[in-house]
C-alpha cells in the first residue's frame, strides 16, 4: 500500500531554451509503502524536483510516476486529487501561512478537499495534536507564533489532509535541537497513527540515521544509491565524493575499527555505538 514507483524519470527545466537544465536523469526507484525514507543529496542534485514529482506539482518530461501501480498522470485533470493523497510540506513551510488564525490556516487544505465543516474541524484538531499545536494557539494569528510553532502549524496544514504519503522537504532546517525533535517526533506520531509512508529530505545525516528505514542518495540529477541506513552509511568515501557525509558517530566507529577494535560495520546511532562498546568493554547495562 502507498507504494510509489518512479520509472525512468527525466525532468528538464526550461526545455528548448539556452537555459535548459536536466534536473533528473533517468531515475528509477521504488519507495515501499509504510516506510520512512530519507532523501539526501547536495544542493542541485535533483531532490526538490523529485519531491515535486511525487505529488504531481511537476510533470516528468520522460518516464512515469506510479502510485500503487497506477500512473498518476493517467487522468491529468484529477491530479489535484493526488495532491491530497501525497501531502507535500515544502522547505520553510512557515512562509506559506496566510490565514487570520492558525485554525483557519490548517483548515485550508481540508476545505479545498470539499469536506463538511464538522469533518474539517475534526481534522484540524487531530493534525494540531500531532504537530504539537495547543488549542489556545489555534485562535492566534499564525504571524504571532514563534519560528518553531509556525513551522509546526504549517506541517499540521498538510497532515490535516490525512495524506497516505507525507513528503517533507527539510522539515527541521534552522531549528534548535528541541524544535527539531518536536517536529520529527510529530511526524513519527502521525505515521504511527495513520500508517502512511513518510519521505523526508534532510541535510542532517544524524537525523536521517535516527528516523529513517531507507535512504535514497541523489547526485548530479541521478540516483546515486538506495538502501538501508546501514548500507548507505558504510560508504563514507562515496558519500563524501558527492558532497555528503556520514553521521559523526559512524566516523568514530570507523576510526575504532581501523585501530583494530572488533565493532560491527553497522553503527549509525549513538545508542548502537554505546551498546556495541558496552558489549566489547564489558560495561553494565544494555
Amino acid at each position: 500500500m502507498n507504494t510509489l514507483q518512479l520509472e525512468h524519470i527525466s525532468y528538464l527545466y526550461s526545455a528548448g531554451t539556452p537555459y535548459e537544465m536536466r534536473a533528473l536523469d533517468n531515475v528509477s526507484l521504488t519507495i515501499r509503502g509504510g516506510t520512512v525514507t530519507g532523501l539526501i543529496g547536495h544542493t542541485g542534485s535533483g531532490k526538490s524536483t523529485l519531491v515535486q514529482l511525487l505529488n504531481g506539482l511537476n510533470r516528468p518530461t520522460e518516464g512515469r510516476v506510479l502510485m500503487d501501480g497506477v500512473d498518476i498522470w493517467e487522468k491529468p485533470k484529477e491530479i489535484a486529487r493526488l495532491r491530497y493523497r501525497v501531502g507535500l510540506v515544502m522547505q520553510y513551510p512557515e512562509y506559506q501561512l496566510f490565514e487570520e488564525t492558525v485554525r483557519a490556516d490548517i483548515a485550508y487544505g481540508p476545505k479545498n478537499m470539499g469536506l463538511s465543516p464538522e469533518e474539517v474541524e475534526a481534522r484540524v484538531l487531530e493534525a494540531a495534536a500531532f504537530a504539537g499545536i495547543s488549542p489556545e494557539m489555534l485562535d492566534q494569528s499564525p504571524f504571532d507564533l514563534s519560528g518553531g510553532q509556525k513551522r509546526r502549524a504549517a506541517i499540521a496544514g498538510i497532515m490535516a489532509m490525512r495524506p497516505e504519503v507525507l513528503v517533507l522537504d527539510e522539515p527541521a532546517a534552522g531549528l534548535d535541537p528541541q524544535g527539531r525533535d518536536e517536529i520529527l517526533g510529530g511526524i513519527r506520531a502521525y505515521r504511527e497513527k495513520s500508517g502512511s509512508t513518510v519521505i523526508i529530505v534532510s541535510h542532517s545525516m544524524e537525523d536521517m540515521a535516527r528516523y529513517c528505514d531507507e535512504l535514497i542518495v541523489m547526485a548530479d540529477a541521478k540516483l546515486f544509491m538506495q538502501g538501508s541506513c546501514e548500507e548507505i552509511f558504510s560508504h563514507p568515501e562515496e558519500l563524501a565524493a558527492v558532497g555528503l557525509d556520514v553521521p559523526q558517530i559512524t566516523r568514530v566507529a570507523q576510526l575504532l575499527r581501523k585501530r583494530g577494535l572488533a565493532l560491527p560495520e553497522s553503527i549509525y546511532t549513538v545508542e548502537q555505538a554505546a551498546a556495541a562498546l558496552c558489549r566489547l568493554m564489558g560495561g553494565e547495562g544494555e
Partner: peptide, 20 residues
Amino acid sequence: IGLDVPQCTDLVHQLRAAGI
C-alpha cells in the same frame, strides 16, 4: 534548555553511565 551535545560527547557520557 532545549540543547544537546555532539554525538561523540554523547557516546562517552553513555559509556560512563554504563560504568566504563
